[in-house]
Design a protein around this nucleic acid. Structure first.
Lengths: 110, 110
DNA sequence: GCTCTATATGTCGGCAGGCTAGGTATCACC
DNA sequence: GGTGATACCTAGCCTGCCGACATATAGAGC
């Protein structure tokens, strides 16, 4: 239980939305980019990734359509909706508030 | 579902350990200090606080004993164990790693 | 004496989210 | 023919936070 589980700490939606905001992208590539950009920190498992994408689509934050990838294969490309754009902004803001609050606690002295 | 739930994002253990590290403290006071230091961000509910304290005690990170408070009432004071001290350091380190990774993602450009 | 608020601890059921572990299929390469 | 990378998906579990509730005492005000 002291392994790595739950290292995402609820940031998955935020980082997915941000990646998709850079341009329409399919699930597998989202995971790759997350890993690359974060220098191997985010190694999102498929069992976390796909359910998250479906949730975001159900909530109307992402919109999906099937296209061909560079490698000539079919994949489900996700794009940010207007609602998703807005949600990204608020999640980003909330994340900043959280990190600031935690920083206040961690800097506290006797 | 777009309210405030889940705003802690798994940081509860970290901030509790940090507060207790400042000096032995009972549950109710921990919640108060968290709120004060974080400028009202952390308003930890009792249904979150006490189970968390029990978990931390079960894991040997905190040690509890009953004492009297300033107000002359009995309360369960928690103190950091050596194991808890160590765990605080690693959790703190992990938190920094997470925030840095998220920052990398959020700063990413096309 | 009574009530109300703040202090102080606790439990219970529910729900969401991430993880493990499985499954399918195609394509390139050796 | 086998292996690895690409690409999608689901089921079930476990943890952690939440809301709601229950309990008890001290002190202030009437």
């Amino acid at each position: 239980m002291d392994g790595k589980p739950e290292f995402l700490k609820g940031t998955l939606d935020l980082v997915i939305l941000k990646i998709v905001a850079l341009g329409p992208c399919h699930g597998y590539a989202i995971a790759q980019r997350l890993r690359q950009i974060s220098k191997d920190y985010f190694q999102v498992h498929q069992g976390s990734l796909y359910p998250a994408l479906h949730r975001l689509e159900d909530r109307g934050l992402l919109q999906a359509d099937w296209r061909d990838t560079d490698t000539g294969r079919e994949a489900k490309f996700y794009a940010l909706t207007k609602k998703g754009q807005k949600h990204l902004e608020t999640e980003r803001f909330e994340w900043e508030r959280l990190t600031e609050a935690v920083a206040l606690i961690l800097r506290a002295v006797e």
